[in-house]
């Protein structure tokens, strides 16, 4: 169990594995698995995410994010997603029960992500915005259920 730190307390209810149907901004459907885990005595939380085709098993999107707290107490995320590379997201104002982040992608695009725990569901939404020129892509929504592996089972 991770040491409780201000960072871990923000993610305490999300640590572990989550799974649910997902649709990317490309329209492709799949199954999303997310895994939140902490490191360095609770100073870092990492999120690994994979979406795979439920028919073929092919993974068609994968990424990982590193969350930490800035000096002002707000979250910062270093994110890598294979489809579009690296970016840094910063926490933005939202409703108290929503974790919302926004950042710039290469090519002048922006990415917004929000996480909200609703009873036993984790609601993940994200959107790629095209910037000054171009068309914003549809906001994606995934509803995930906790899928914790039994102790001792490999990840």
């Amino acid at each position: 169990m991770a040491m409780t730190t201000p960072l871990v307390s923000r993610f305490q209810s999300m640590l572990g594995y989550w799974r649910g149907p997902n649709q990317l901004e490309t329209g492709r459907h799949g199954l999303l698995e997310m895994h939140f885990h902490s490191h360095f005595e609770g100073e870092l939380v990492q999120l690994d995410a994979y979406t795979w085709d439920t028919v073929t098993g092919e993974t068609f999107s994968a990424g990982t994010g590193l969350f930490a707290l800035k000096h002002d107490g707000r979250l910062i995320e270093n994110l890598y997603v294979g489809r579009f590379g690296f970016c840094m997201l910063h926490e933005t104002d939202d409703e108290p029960d929503v974790l919302a982040l926004l950042g710039d992608l290469p090519g002048g695009r922006t990415m917004s992500v929000s996480l909200r725990l609703e009873d036993d569901e984790l609601l993940l939404t994200s959107q790629l915005k095209a910037g000054v020129v171009g068309k914003d892509l549809p906001r994606t929504v995934a509803r995930l259920k906790r899928y914790d592996r039994p102790p001792g089972e490999g990840a």
Binding site: H39, F40, L66, A68, N78, F86
Partner: peptide, 23 residues
Amino acid sequence: RLILAPCPDGTLQCMGFSTRFGM
């Protein structure tokens, strides 16, 4: 903790977190 990976253009980049220096 560092993540080393290729950008879409094939060049390697690295992101990470240091307990002393931040992201």
